[in-house]
Computed example of a mutant assay.
Amino acid sequence: MKIIIPMAGLGKRMRPHTLTTPKPLLDIAGKSIVSRLITDISEMLNEPIEEVAYIIGDFGKQVEEDLYKLSEELNLKAKIYYQYEALGTAHALYMAKDSLSGNVLVAYADTLFYTTFKADISEDACIWVKKIDNPSQFGVVELDHQGYITRFVEKPKEFVSDLAIIGIYYFKDASALLREIEFLLENNITGNGEYQLTDALERLMNKGMKIKAAEVQGWFDCGNKNAVLQTHQEIFKLGKFQKTNLLPENITGSVIHQPCYIAEDVKIIDSEIGPYVSIGNGTIVENAKIENSIIYSHASIQNATLRNSMIGSYVKYHNMKDREVSLGDYSEIL
């Protein structure tokens, strides 16, 4: 089994944090989005993963090194492909054409999911879906009585289905998908100016491929700051975070309301932390109250009250009360 993760988007809705770090490499509760995605997929599959292929933009050598390191930590072989132009979901996969063969699972690095079922890789293809309340904002699928997909509908104005595509796809023989993507590109078949994966999928279904829908229990968005913080909460509620051993000398005169993720070398002085707070390596918090927030590494928070906030690495945030903020790396508010 191979996993392909398209992640070349600029993450504009997550700025300023994505100005320095691609969105899939942002940490949530001490673990990057893409690492969580790969781990959750591994738990769902019934067979070992032989390769993970990342499709990235012009993110620089450090990002490539981080992805290779992440894969090594997960005992996976890594490949990196590049999509320099935003020409659509099918075009992104075409950039990884050398990996589009055999059993392949495609997972777009925009969201996380939760499920207790194991993937059925005996099917020709599967698409993961989630029942939602607002289907007009998403691509949805219609099913037959056996749970196979009969139609794709993008952001329906009138109700046709409440099963939204969450961005995870399995193909028993990905070379068949590659042939249909090549057909789209060769014949310049686009939707809204981009080469769409759903067009390739419809061609596969028209040729007889049966695509099963697999419904997940949880689908967590990482599209903007508020969505990330909501996902952050859900991860804590599911217990999907590593609990750290807090050294007494690093936590003085302070109260920690669990659940929280606090890196081992964080110093917290005369503060009240939590619930639903993550604090990264080397951060110092003094005389502060923080809840439902993510604070990245080597930040300094003093004489401050924070809620529903994201604070980047090396930020200095002092003498501010009762604020909800989103500050990129190296910002200073003193």
Rank of each mutant, 00 (worst) to 15 (best):
L185H: 07
I294Q: 12
E332M: 10
Y114K: 14
Q302M: 10
Y314S: 04
I262S: 13
N206R: 12
Y169I: 06
D66Y: 01
G88S: 09
S42F: 05
I268F: 03
I56M: 05
E324G: 04
V160L: 04
S293N: 11
M320W: 01
T39P: 02
Y148A: 03
S300M: 10
E85L: 11
L163K: 09
P156M: 00
S293L: 10
D66F: 01
Y195E: 09
T111L: 04
I165F: 05
K31N: 05
R203C: 06
I301V: 15
H17Q: 08
L45S: 01
A96I: 03
E234L: 03
K131T: 12
E215K: 00
I41N: 03
A164Q: 12
K207Q: 15
A53P: 09
T89D: 14
D270F: 02
Q233E: 14
N134G: 00
L93A: 05
S161Q: 09
L67P: 07
S293R: 02
K316W: 07
K240L: 15
L26M: 03
L163T: 07
T252A: 08
T231P: 04
G218S: 09
K267C: 09
E194Q: 12
D120I: 00
L26S: 02
L247Q: 02
N206E: 14
T111I: 06
F152R: 11
K207T: 06
N308I: 05
T283S: 13
L105Y: 00
I333H: 14
V266A: 08
I311D: 05
E286I: 09
E234G: 06
R323D: 07
T20H: 11
S297Y: 10
L229H: 09
S309R: 00
I311K: 02
T39E: 15
T20V: 09
I262R: 01
G239V: 08
G312C: 11
E194K: 12
N103V: 05
G282N: 06
Y94M: 04
R179S: 15
D144N: 03
V315F: 03
Y54L: 03
I80M: 06
V160H: 15
E272H: 10
E142A: 04
N226D: 15
G167L: 01
D120W: 00
A29Y: 02
I268D: 02
F171R: 00
F236L: 06
I28Y: 15
G191D: 14
I284Q: 01
H145N: 12
Q258L: 14
L19G: 09
L185T: 11
T39W: 08
E47N: 00
I311T: 07
S297H: 14
I4S: 07
G167D: 10
D322Y: 03
H318I: 13
E272P: 11
N192R: 08
S309E: 10
E182K: 13
A213Q: 08
E202Q: 04
L10H: 07
L185N: 11
E332H: 13
L177A: 09
H17N: 12
G191C: 10
L105R: 00
K157A: 11
Y276H: 06
H318D: 09
K172A: 06
G328L: 08
G11K: 06
